[in-house]
């Protein structure tokens, strides 16, 4: 009796391990192999040679420039927004909550079309700006606006939930000591949630860097002005220069890895403090 049962359990356990092993290997390979293939398609020599290609250089700098501006705006505007949003209740708060999440589920191409029909030269608001000689569509500003629209929810959601979860006792203590709202935000709330905020910001940065659909719709595709790295990959792979496409893809993979490692390190740091 006992050895039988033991054997059965042992067998079941083996099946479990086997199934788990296959599952983990399958998922890992499925996610990792495409990335590996990307690196295998390029030789290091060709990669470094293509790095000097003017299209690669301009796309890289444009992407870094626009995503940095996007990130700065999102953090500077998003932090106080998320703070007030989480601290006060106001009519239509549910609607605002939903709108924050909307760009996450909205196809980026749709976001681009929506931005174009609002801010474009004949758009609902754009036509008035056009009277004053201000054009937004097909400029670097359009790239940034598209990135903010698509990528800001990552930071806003994170900041909102961090502020909501923070024990109100800290802020109340600060308030009883006479600190102003701004001072509480900058001296208490933000420092206490800094780790989470940074990882939210990093995710926003990553999403903005990868922005494609809204950018090509709203900002167009002009090297040096609106052609960001993902657009340069697309154009390169369409046959202009496949090496450019592959090189930028590899660059983006490296940057993405950097982003993920940064988030991991911040989260570990966070865990230590907690």
């Amino acid at each position: 009796m006992i050895p039988d049962r033991f054997r059965l359990r042992n067998y079941r356990q083996k099946v479990t391990y086997l199934a788990a092993g296959i599952l983990i290997a399958a998922v890992t390979l499925y996610l990792a192999l495409p990335i590996v293939a990307l690196f295998l398609r390029m030789t290091p020599g060709l990669f470094f040679a293509t790095l000097n290609n003017p299209d690669v250089v301009s796309a890289l700098w444009l992407s870094l420039f626009t995503t940095c501006i996007t990130l700065t705006i999102v953090v500077l505007v998003g932090t106080p927004f998320a703070y007030f949003h989480s601290r006060y209740s106001y009519p239509g708060k549910m609607i605002v909550d939903t709108l924050i999440d909307l760009p996450l589920v909205l196809p980026p191409a749709v976001a681009g079309v929506a931005l174009l029909v609002l801010w474009g030269r004949v758009g609902i608001l754009g036509m008035y700006l056009n009277m004053y000689g201000i054009t937004i569509a097909f400029t670097t500003l359009a790239v940034i606006m598209a990135q903010i629209f698509v990528a800001s929810p990552f930071y806003l959601r994170q900041a909102k939930s961090l502020f909501e979860q923070l024990d109100p006792a800290y802020e109340q203590t600060a308030r009883t000591l006479g600190a102003s709202s701004l001072r509480i935000l900058t001296r208490v709330t933000v420092p206490m949630t800094a780790g989470g905020l940074i990882s939210g910001a990093v995710m926003t940065f990553g999403r903005a860097l990868g922005e494609f659909g809204a950018t090509i719709m709203f900002a167009g595709n002009l090297p040096g002005v609106t052609q960001t790295m993902p657009l340069a990959v697309y154009v390169g792979m369409e046959g202009t220069n496949i090496n450019v496409g592959l090189t930028i893809s590899i660059l983006l993979v490296i940057i993405s890895f950097g982003i993920m490692i940064a988030v991991r390190l911040i989260q570990r740091q966070e865990a230590k403090h907690a």
């Binding site: 174009l116 474009g120 030269r121 004949v122 569509a137 097909f138 090509i216 900002a219 167009g220 595709n221 002009l222 090297p223 002005v225 609106t226 052609q227 697309y234 154009v235 369409e238």
Partner: peptide, 21 residues
């Protein structure tokens, strides 16, 4: 004066039809 290099011919026509260029 070129503000965008589109990835297909109809995309150019669309930008003109929209009045954006």
């Amino acid at each position: 004066n070129v503000v965008t290099y589109e990835t297909s011919e109809p995309a150019v026509a669309a930008k003109v039809a929209l009045g954006e260029v």
